[in-house]
């Protein structure tokens, strides 16, 4: 089954199985007063537009993934993006579970830690992209997204180096680096999804 034939039902099943596998849960941002409060706060301090936060960014707090789309509905996110964004966010869930205090404090107060956590999660969706399309995405452009996370060029360059290292490994080998990406690829193959 090529990507064009991925159905909303398959994506819903993927989310259900993946959340169960990693002991996480998912909430629609529109249904969360907590997320609406954060959106208002970020807008007030001019960090991020309220509408952008609510409609474009998926946010993970501890083991809960707040998504700006209804699973299987392609109005905001296409189906493949709904799969890869979950792989990215579940990587944060694993990072949290590995060291709850270290992850939470590090992400909030230490920019280098935040860059490292994001770089590893970007690595997971880099692997998903490579599995599906047989080529790496534009690493520098992806790393540049970190400017929306309050990070500077030195952190963006560091994240790009992490992604280049992972990218070199997966292009020279048949291996997967990320635990979540490996699980997702196994799941997709078991459900008849094949790379393009």
């Amino acid at each position: 089954m090529p990507i064009s034939q991925i159905t909303p039902e398959l994506v819903q099943q993927f989310w259900k199985d993946a959340l169960k596998e990693y002991d996480a849960k998912s909430v629609d941002k529109d249904d969360s007063d907590f997320m609406k409060s954060i959106a208002t706060f970020l807008d007030a301090i001019k960090v991020l537009d309220k509408e952008d936060f609510m409609k474009q960014f998926t946010t993970t707090i501890f083991k809960t993934i707040y998504r700006p789309f209804k699973i299987g509905d392609t109005a905001n996110y296409d189906l493949w993006s709904q799969i890869t964004v979950l792989v990215h966010e579940l990587t944060h869930v694993l990072q949290f579970k590995a060291d709850e205090v270290g992850f939470t404090v590090g992400y909030i107060v230490n920019k280098s830690s935040r860059a490292a956590f994001e770089a590893d999660a970007y690595g997971a969706d880099l692997e998903m992209h490579y599995w599906m399309y047989g080529k790496l995405y534009n690493i520098k452009a992806r790393a540049a997204n970190l400017k929306y996370y309050g990070l500077q060029q030195e952190h963006i360059d560091f994240a790009a180096s992490v992604l280049e290292s992972i990218g070199t490994t997966i292009t020279k080998s048949d291996a997967a680096v990320s635990e979540v990406a490996a699980w997702a690829m196994d799941w997709l193959e078991a459900h008849g999804v094949t790379p393009e």
Partner: peptide, 13 residues
Amino acid sequence: WHKVQDCSKLKRT
């Protein structure tokens, strides 16, 4: 130092 990957723990290989 940031640990990027452990080559002895790669998956699907």
